[in-house]
Structure formats: structure tokens, C-alpha cells
Computed example of a mutant assay.
Amino acid sequence: MKSIKYLKLALFALVIGLSATSCMDEDWTDPTGEVAPFGNNQLQETNVVSIADLKAKYGAQLKDVVNDTVRIADGVQIKGRVTGNDISGNIYSQVMIEDATGGIIISVAQGGINGQLQLGQEILVDLGGLYYGVYRTQPQLGIPYTDFKKNQTYPSRISRAEWQTRFKILGKPDASLVVPHVFETSEISTLNDETVAQKYSGQIVTLKGVEFDTADGTVTFAPEAEGATTGHGVTRYFKGYTGQKKQIGIRTSCYAKFAAEKLPKGKLNVTGILTVYKTSATSSYGTTVQLVLRTLSDIEVLEPEKNQPAEEK
């Protein structure tokens, strides 16, 4: 009798299993994983403009403005490859994309973006109804936020739910296609020209042969105590670019995984997303050019012996 009972239970389990498999076969239409499980797979390319053209059209409406936004026309799309995300915590609530003409920062109220948008992932983005804006002259895409005390409007973060309807994954990520624009040592000073700096803002660039001004073996990237008075981020400048009208360096979040690491000494090749900031449109302090590192490996140490303790040399 027990054998018959167990046989009935086994047959029942088999029927249930077959039913579940049948449902899965009918509902799971992408067993190969070709359709992304996030984003909006229904988006189609209809009105893709280049990032350079987007900046030219909407940036012209914000000329000489430090903080403001302008609505993007319905139907406008851009397509680009991810060059920066929050993989190390240094980039927060932003994703950077780039096409053959330029780069742009998109502000998104979402953590863990790197899990969905890896470096080298190409995406299509629907911008219609969103806003092109500048924060201290740095272009960004998002939604407007108004600081009524200062009577200024800034580009702020798109909600996580809204963002999921706005982008579509195109193919598979290929980090080898993220190729920085290289500034040789003799060319870096051209970034002190605001027109040149703005041309490359939002793009991934490499500055070759630079050296941190304060690297002495003890100074770290972004100590919390120092960042507490500077918006939880610290700027470290390169030698020769610390003056009030020629500031070039890196900006590091106090929450970055490498914030407590010591600044490397000696000559370096530094790669990062180039950003441009001014305190006002007519600021006598000129333009501050800041690179934002994706990970600590964005720094190539050319003189590693300078970073070794004396007893290990």
C-alpha cells in the first residue's frame, strides 16, 4: 500500500512539474538572454541626434549662465556608450555616455548603476521632456531642481522608475571600445581655455605625465575631515595647474572605495571623466577642470619607485 501511495505522489509531482515547464515555455520568450531584463526594450531609434549637436542647440540657450535648465523637445534621442558609472563609489547617481562627437553626464537617482550599465555598454536614450542643464557651467541631463534661497535652478536626478523607461540596452558591453582622448604633457595647458575644456567636458580623457602637487607619501585622495567642508569631495591639483586661472586636477568623493589611499608620487598618466566648473559666468578665478576617476586603476604610475618606502628601495 505504501508503494502505491508513493507512486501516486510521484505521478502528481511529475504532472505539476510538466505544467510548470509548459507555462515557462509559453511565457519565457528569451531563453538565450538576448533581451535585457531592465530598461525599455520597446524604444526604437526615431530621432537620434549627436551629443555635440544636443550640446550646441541647448547649450546656446544657456550661454553665459552658470546654473539653469531648458526643456528638451519631445522625441529627441541620443545614443552612446557608457564611459563612467558608480563601480567604485566615486561617481554618485550619474552615468556618463559618449558617442563619436562628445560626452554627456546623465543624473539618475539610482545606486548600483554599474550592475545594469557596465563600461562599454551602448544605450539608446529618450530625452524628450527631460532637461538639459548646467551646474556651475558643467552640462548635465536630468530634471530641474530650484534652490529658492539662491533663486537658481540646477539639473537634478531623474527618478529610478522614470529612468527605466528612458533607456534601451543595445548589444553587449565592450569596454575595449571606450577609448580616452589623450592629452600629451605639452597639450594639457590647452584645457585652461574654457572653449577647449567645454568641448571635452563629459568625455573620457587621459592626461599624460602629470604629477600631484601635494603627493608627499602621506596625503590621501579624500579624507572625510577635509571633505566635510567641501561637499564630501576633495580636489587634488596637478603641479603647474594650481593657480586661480589654471586649475586642473581630480575630484574624489569621500565615499569612493579608494578615498583613503595615498596619492601616488611622481609622473602619472591619469584617466577620468573631464568636468568643467566655474563659480560664476564672469568669475575672475577662471575655469576649474576636474577629472573624475572611475576606479583607482585609472591612474598609471610611471615612476613606481617613488611610491616605495625608503627601506624597500
Score class of each variant (00 low, 15 high):
V76A: 00
L191W: 11
Q164W: 02
V289T: 03
K239W: 04
I87A: 15
L127C: 05
K265T: 15
E26Y: 13
G102R: 08
D30I: 06
V48R: 00
G233A: 15
V48M: 02
L11G: 07
R236K: 12
K245F: 10
P173R: 07
T229Q: 15
V301C: 10
Y92D: 13
L141Y: 04
R166A: 12
I123P: 02
L293F: 15
V65M: 07
G243L: 05
D99M: 06
S159Y: 02
V234C: 09
Q44K: 06
G240Q: 03
I299H: 08
V76E: 01
A228Q: 10
Q77W: 09
G89A: 14
T282W: 07
A10D: 01
L117R: 05
E194D: 12
G80V: 03
T279A: 04
S22R: 02
Y58D: 05
T220R: 03
I113T: 14
G171P: 05
S253D: 05
I188M: 14
L43W: 00
T271M: 13
P304E: 07
Y285I: 01
F183H: 03
K267S: 10
N151S: 11
Q42A: 14
R71K: 08
V210N: 14
V108A: 10
Q290D: 14
Y135T: 11
I16Q: 12
T220Q: 06
S186F: 13
K306V: 08
C23I: 15
Q244K: 09
V219T: 11
P264T: 15
K267P: 09
S176H: 05
A56R: 12
I105K: 14
Q110I: 14
S50R: 00
T218S: 11
Y6G: 02
Y154N: 04
T252Y: 09
N40K: 03
A13D: 04
L268V: 07
E311Y: 12
V66A: 05
D174Q: 09
T242W: 00
Y154I: 07
L263K: 07
T153D: 09
E122G: 02
V76D: 02
V66T: 08
A56P: 05
T101I: 05
D53P: 01
R81N: 13
M24L: 15
S189L: 13
D74I: 01
A256C: 01
Y237I: 05
F258N: 00
R251Y: 11
T83V: 07
G249C: 03
F221H: 02
D193A: 14
T271P: 03
G103C: 12
D27A: 15
I248P: 01
K239R: 09
V70I: 10
A161L: 07
G142H: 01
G266A: 11
